[in-house]
Structure formats: C-alpha cells, structure tokens
Amino acid sequence: MQQVNKWPSGLVNKPLRYCPGCGHGIVHRIVGECLEELGIRERTVGIAPVGCSVFADEYFNCDMIQGPHGRGPAIATGIKRSKPECIVFSYQGDGDLASIGMAETVHSAARSENITVIFINNAIYGMTGGQMAPTTLIGQQASTCPRGRTVQANGYPIRVCELLAQLEGARYLERTSTHTAAHVIKAKKAIRQAFQNQIDGKGFSLVEVLSICPTNWGLTPLQSLKFVTEKMMPMYPLGVFRTPDAAAGAATEGGAA
C-alpha cells in the first residue's frame, strides 16, 4: 500500500482556521502544491489580502507580506520590479480585488506586470460577516442588502475576467471553480499555468476561482455546491478568457446565453 497524497511543502503543516466547507482551503492546497511541483517555493513571495484569507500569510510556506485592503497587485509590482528573479503572487477575495482594489487590479493588468493573481470569488464579504460584494448576484441576500441585491439600489455584479479581457496587458485570464473534484483538478491546472507564465516572463496572469462560503450564504456546504452550479455559473461562466498566445477565448462551461 502506498500513500497517494501528502501535505504539500508549499503549505505550512498546521490546521486551517477557515469555516467548515470554505473553499479557501482547497485553493491554498493547490497553490502549495504548485509551489512544490514547479520548484519555486524558495524564491516565491506571496501577498495576503484583507478579508478571510488575511490568514494566508500563516499558511503558505514561502515569504509572505500582508498589505492594505485591495492593494495586493501594487505591492506585487513593487516586489517584482525590485526582485525580478522572484515569483510573486497576490491572493485576493472579491471585495479586496474587485471593490476597493479594482484600480490596482486594472492597472497592474494594463502594465502587464509579470505577476500571478489568485482571485477567490464567493460573491460575498466573509470576514466582516456577509456584506454585499461586487460579485454578489442580483437577488442574492447579504447583510447590507437584506432584501436581496437589486439593480436599482446596488447596480450589477462585476465579471472580472470579462472586464480585464479588454486589456492588452492581461495575458492570461481563466475562470475556474471548486465545486466538484473534477473542477478542482482543472482549477489546479489553471493556477499552475498562471505560475508557469510568470516563470516564462509572459506578463499578467489571473485565475478566478468560484468558491463556496456556506457561513455567509446561510447554506450548508452541500447546498452551497448547488448554489455554485445553479446561480453562480450562469453569471460567471467558466473558461479561458485570454492566453498569452491568443486573444480573447470563449467561455466553455456554464454561460447563461
């Protein structure tokens, strides 16, 4: 009998403090495995955001820096330009990346900074207790839209990959999900590619990961998986939106149209 899987060296061996079912743990493991498999752990610097994954600095087994809310890509720019030989990644949630940090996101992509951005989209603010996010769906309840998000009061949700796909500097954009084991494997392939792009000097790469937040959605983890397929994926279709070699690609799964 052989052990099939093990704790990746890219992740500190300690229990994760996230809520039961939270998708951060899955993506943390994926990133930890990529750092190990690509042999880049010892030259990688990660950026932890503000939000639930503020704890990321405890978990990733590489040099880490925690910065102000939303400023991850700017901090990454400073690190990468000072130490081009390092692999720099920013790990951000939807509030951090698409709300307060939208300017940094857009402009680091426009400059095509040679960095990797991991973007966790769970359509809600987690750490602060379930407020509306820029990616909260129309009709979805949140603690600052208790009667459900409306276009009239709150506007439309933002599709980050589609938005960034307009920018020439955004070289690799893919939206993935973690709601089944097969999707987790695909998400890992995308994240690995995003790191490989940086190693190859190809410029700005961002992988969006649809992720569940049972606590703030008010659902069980199993109900949350259904929410991803039934509610999130029609709004946020999975697929590759840009690659370094080709221009915009098309959504491959889940699109409403």
């Binding site: 229990p15 998708g23 084991a181």
Partner: peptide, 9 residues
C-alpha cells in the same frame, strides 16, 4: 477525489 475537494487536507 475526496482528498481533492477536502478543504482541510
């Protein structure tokens, strides 16, 4: 596959 989706390793 169970280990793939487990958020807590």
């Amino acid at each position: 596959l169970c280990a793939q989706i487990c958020p807590d390793l």
